[in-house]
């Protein structure tokens, strides 16, 4: 499906540009995007090293296992395919905790590490397992408790109470997370 989405994005963009006369703009934009990819990845290499390093420290201290045990009840339902003592449990627990705490820089590195553990269980197959799809869906819905960067922008825009959106954010996150879990569970049964 990602292949189709990618092709459609490029197709739709180029055809539109032919009609709107923005052909030079899209050519410039696509070249500029390569530069931003490199800038992004350079920022990410650092964050990635930092968090995979800290993660290893936490692992050796036994903190990751403790966290995994704490979340085991929830995981049993959401990720039924993961063996009880597999390192994937700890990796997912760390990743989801980072999401909840709003550690933006840690979320992607820890998420990728968890995805690697899940891929190991799946025999590194090119086809995603149910657990991998579920983990991808959980990361695509935003489950942070405090949307810090949005609150800062609200404050800068002159809000009298930036945090007034928090209840709405929590309810919305809960709705989209539940929808995602249910949708993923339903679709895996249909064998799509």
């Amino acid at each position: 499906m990602l292949n189709a989405i990618w092709a459609i994005m490029i197709f739709a963009g180029v055809i539109t540009a032919l009609f709107t006369g923005r052909t030079k703009e899209i050519s410039d934009a696509v070249l500029a995007s390569c530069v931003s990819s490199i800038q992004l990845i350079i920022t990410m290499v650092g964050a990635m090293c930092l968090w995979t390093g800290v993660m290893r420290v936490a692992q050796k201290a036994g903190l990751v296992d403790k966290l995994a045990k704490l979340l085991r009840g929830v995981f049993k339902f959401i990720f039924p395919g993961i063996p009880k003592d597999h390192p994937a449990n700890g990796a997912i627990a760390m990743s989801i905790s980072a999401d909840l705490l709003g550690l933006g820089s840690a979320a992607t590195p820890l998420g990728i590490m968890a995805m690697k553990e899940l891929s190991n269980i799946n025999g590194n197959s090119p086809t995603a397992s149910n657990a991998m799809v579920m983990f991808g869906v959980l990361n695509s819905v935003c489950i942070q408790l405090i949307p810090a960067s949005i609150l800062v922008i609200r404050q800068q825009a002159g809000s009298v109470k930036p945090s007034s959106i928090m209840p709405a954010v929590w309810i919305t996150s809960l709705i989209s997370a539940t929808t995602g879990i249910v949708a993923a569970k339903c679709m895996e049964k249909r064998g799509l």
Binding site: V133, V137, E188
Partner: peptide
């Protein structure tokens, strides 16, 4: 996430 583990077929991930 899926690219990092060389998954080609993401099944219902995008739809869900």
């Amino acid at each position: 996430y899926f690219g990092a583990v060389n998954v080609k077929n993401t099944r219902h991930a995008a739809a869900a």
